[in-house]
Every structure is written in C-alpha cells, then in structure tokens.
Design a protein around this nucleic acid. Structure first.
Lengths: 249, 249
DNA sequence: CAGGTTCCTGCGCATTTTTGCAAGAATTAG
DNA sequence: CTAATTCTTGCAAAAATGCGCAGGAACCTG
C-alpha cells in the first residue's frame, strides 16, 4: 500500500468516526504503529486532523464541543454572502450545501425574501428556520457528524428528484486543472447530485481556496456557472477562471 | 476512550447541565475518579470550567443564577430521561419524536452507548450530534417551523420503511378515555407512523400532562407499552394506567 | 546500466504519558 | 462533633512515544 493511499484511508476513517486509534489502524492497514504515527503527524501538520496521545481526532470533533470558536475568515465570508444573496429572487427553488460560507449566506438573507430552500446541512437549516418567509425542505439520510450534513444514497436520490433554479456550493478547493475537489467521499457524491439537479451552479469560496486541490473531484470547471469570492472580480488571481468561461463576482 | 475525547465529553456535560459530579462522570465514562479529577484540573487550568469539591461547575453558572419558572419542570424531565435511557442498549434502532422531554433524554445518553437514532426533530438531532458513538438517521421532508420537526408524506413514508426496536414519544396529553392526543395534525400523523414502525412504544410525559386531552387522537392506550413520568410508579395518579396493562416506570 | 542519493519502513530501547490504587489528610454535611 | 465523602500524594504498571539505525525501494544522474 502506498503512502498516499494509506494517508487518505486514515483521513477517511477520521472523517467517518471522528477518531482513530493508532493501534487499530496499525492492524487494519498492516503496517507498524510507527508508520501510522508518522502519518498522523504529517496529516496533523497539514491541518487535516488533530494528533492526540493514542491516536487522532477529527478537527470537527473539537468544533462540536467548543462551538464558541469563532468562524475563520468571517469578514470575507460576509462579503461573499452579500454577493450571493443578490442572485436569489422570490419564488426560487434553491439548493444549498453546508459549510460556514453557506451559513453566512443563510444569515444574510433579506427577511422579505420568499423562496424555498433545500438542504441537508443541519447548521444551514437552523439558520433558515429563523427566517420568517422561506419554506424549508430538509433532505434526510444518515448524518455525517463531522460535516454536519446528511449523506448517503437516500439523500442523493432525493436530490435527484429535484429541479432547482440555483444551487450554492460552499467549496473546499478549486483549481484550473482539477476543477472543484474535496476530501470527503460522501460529501462529493452529494455535491455531484446537487450540481446535476440545478439549472445554475454557484460556487462560494474564500480566496485562499482558489488554486488548491484535494483528493476527490466533484466536477470539472465547465459545470460551474458562477464563482464568488471576497475579491474584486478583476483580481489577477481570478483571471484564469474568467478565461475559462466562468462568471466571476 | 481517548483522553481528549473524554475531556470534550466532560466539557459538554458541564456546559449542558452547569455542573458535574466526579463520581457520576466516573461511572458514566467508566474510568476511575482519579482520572476524572485530573481531567477536571486540566480543564480548569485551561479556564474551561471551575473545579470545586466533588466535581466542577460551568463558568456561566458562576454568574448570578436566578431560579426561573421552567426549572421545576426541567428537573422532572431529567428524572424521566434517566428512567428512559435505561431502556436503550447497544445496537438498538431507536425512533424518537421531538419535544423538550426527548431533548433531555438526548442530553443524558451515556457516552459509551452505541445505537442508531432516527428522528425528524432538529433540536433532537443537534443533541445526538454531540454524542460520540451514536449513528443518526435524519428523516427528511418539509420543516414545520413551529414544531421544528420534519412533517409531510415523505417523512411518514420514510418512517414506515423502518422497523425500530423502540420508539420514544414525548407526548402532550394522555388520559384513559381518549388515549394519547395532540393538537398538531402533522405531528399526529408522524407519531402514528412511528408507533406502527416500532416493536415497543414508550411514552414520556411529565405528570401534569397525565389525565389531560387534546383535539386529535394519536392512538389508544393499548398501543402503548410503557409510560414514564417523574413520579414513583406506585403513585395513585398512575394506577389507572397500570390497570390498563401499561408498564409504568 | 552502475553508482549514488533520497525516501520509506520496521525494530529495539530508553522515556514519557496515562491511569489506577492505597493510605492518610482535608472537606463537607447532618 | 462525627461520619462519609473527596482530595492529595506517592507509586507502579501498561501503553504510547521519540529516536537512532539499517535494509530496501525508488529515483535521479551521468
């Protein structure tokens, strides 16, 4: 088994169970605990997980228990949210993913807006519930604790039955070569379904996620209609995406 | 259980109940009291809680605490929750409704419990997400903003596909003549489906709801296996239900 | 292709961390 | 004041870790 292979397996396990033990990973993958430990340190260095004595924890594990932690780069996300909400109009059917950027958008929705929002993200749903005039459809299935979103075949099937006017995706990584990428297999499947079920696909990303990539591909760039960042549309960082035919706001 | 994991759990409990006892944590997590005490000191050092003789207090509790009207009821709900969680065992498939009593039960689940919980109640789901070892299935559909639960044909259909070991209903009214009753039509439909999909039906109700009724019937008494209140099972108020063949805890 | 370099992996051993136990001291509650 | 609970302290065993090293694979480089 290759190193990369092993590490993505570890990452997958961490995202799935929120914790892993060095000892059990060692027997599962059939390598020494030293190797596992070295892998865990590398992944911890990259910020993919949190190394602790005896194993590792998913990063979201902490967030669940210490919700007071401030949202990273919140100001930028507010800028993005402001641009995004201008694309939503009365009567629309809107599909949204999870993520803090989407959350910020949910908070910024104008109170007089009347639209229907579809999502499987628990935090997003909570925000929508505070809104006086929007209708909410919750997509059900198994809940992935670390992404706080429903994942699985049921959820995907449900999304496939929908034809939404617009779909907002909070994304983790995007670059010219790999398109939109992510590190959680379940979430990737879900986002793929969302893209297919929408007339228009809008990606929200803070600029530091531009030109980065992760192991699993969600889609090529040509599936995306609009990209929203906190930067000015003319920013040189965004030029390649404009050239690729994406509307950049 | 990893150290960090344990400490997160402790913090969660402290933030939830405003106080924890070393002794009860020790039996809940199944480690010695020494370990708990050492954890509490560490967390106190980090300023996450306040260590006191016998346990710890949440920081917010340090502020003026004025007894509010809901406290009496809250205590009773905790008693009910304690009785209820003893019916849940590892590997079970558990169906739950919404309501504050169910919420209290969700908060009281022992951390080592491994079971699958199915619910459409957003607040309940949030509590389940804090639990390290339980699997959550979210029942999707339109969200009813006032009951914060998914309602509709999709949700009912989904529940009908399930065969759960046990079903916990937080109920609004129960009496000998009308059985279990409620005032929200959508919620009634959902609870009906839940009852039909479970091997065992457990009703949770604070005593003030005993012998009251509401407009819409959920089911007759004979559908109910167990009734849990904050009262002692021998309380005369409960005698009619015992006589009706219901297990009363 | 030969030689050299770098990277990956597993092993042994000393160290550190974590955890539980016991006995006496301290604190709390009635 | 008395009894019960909780705390402190020291200690020991088990588990996890850090580190150096060595064999081998992969990868240049000429």
């Amino acid at each position: 088994m290759l190193k990369k292979e092993r590490q993505s397996y570890i990452l997958h396990q961490v995202n799935l169970h929120n914790k892993v033990l060095s000892s059990s990973l060692s027997t599962e993958i059939n390598v020494s605990e030293d190797t596992i430990r070295r892998d865990l340190y590398e992944l911890a260095d990259e910020g993919k997980l949190i190394k602790v004595h005896g194993g590792a924890l998913s990063h979201s594990f902490n967030e669940v228990h210490f919700p007071s932690k401030g949202v990273y780069s919140q100001e930028n996300k507010k800028k993005i949210a402001q641009k995004a909400i201008q694309m939503i109009h009365n009567g629309m059917f809107v599909l949204t993913s999870g993520g803090t950027t989407i959350l910020e958008m949910a908070r910024s929705l104008p109170p007089q807006l009347r639209a229907t929002f579809v999502s499987g993200s628990i935090p997003a749903i909570l925000e929508y519930m505070n809104h006086p005039n929007i209708e909410i459809i919750l997509v059900g299935d198994r809940i992935s604790k670390n992404s706080k979103i429903t994942v699985g075949l049921e959820a995907i099937a449900k999304i496939q039955q929908i034809q939404a006017n617009i779909c907002f995706l909070g994304i983790n990584a995007i670059d010219i070569k790999h398109g939109v990428t992510e590190n959680d297999w379940d979430v990737v499947q879900l986002k793929k379904a969302m893209i297919e079920s929408s007339q228009k696909v809008v990606c929200l990303a803070i600029s530091e996620k531009i030109n980065s990539f992760q192991p699993i591909q969600i889609c090529e760039l040509n599936k995306i209609d609009t990209l929203i960042t906190e930067l000015h549309p003319d920013d040189p960082l965004l030029k390649p995406y404009v050239d690729a035919g994406i509307e950049v706001l």
